[in-house]
């Protein structure tokens, strides 16, 4: 249940930063130029605040931001203190 709550919160954050995208299905947010560098900066700051994590530069790669699911996985990893 914890994970579901996080995903809902993640969808909220994404919709606030960049509305008009179906984040439940989109899987090319970076590769498809939906999220730009500056939006990702805001997203990184918001994710760090909301989920109490630190996202190092090495984690800011398209694979971790192309979909909400990938972001969820990254958050989970970082919450466990497991860097790439």
């Amino acid at each position: 249940m914890e994970e579901l709550y996080e995903m809902e919160e993640l969808y909220e954050i994404l919709n606030e930063l960049q509305p008009g995208v179906d984040y439940e299905t989109a899987d090319d947010l970076v590769d498809g130029h939906v999220l730009h560098s500056l939006t990702i900066l805001a997203l990184v700051a918001e994710l760090e605040d909301s989920f109490d994590i630190t996202i190092p530069a090495v984690e800011i790669i398209p694979e971790n931001f192309n979909s909400a699911a990938a972001m969820g996985n990254m958050i989970e990893r970082l919450q466990k203190g497991d860097w790439q």
Binding site: L38, L41, A45
Partner: peptide
């Protein structure tokens, strides 16, 4: 942008300038 100082700047500027202009400072 992911350095400590720049992240602090992004967080501070987002509070005053919002989600669009906030990250622009560090960006």
């Amino acid at each position: 942008t992911a350095s400590k100082g720049m992240k602090k700047l992004t967080k501070r500027s987002r509070k005053t300038l919002g989600n669009h202009y906030g990250p622009l400072a560090a960006g």
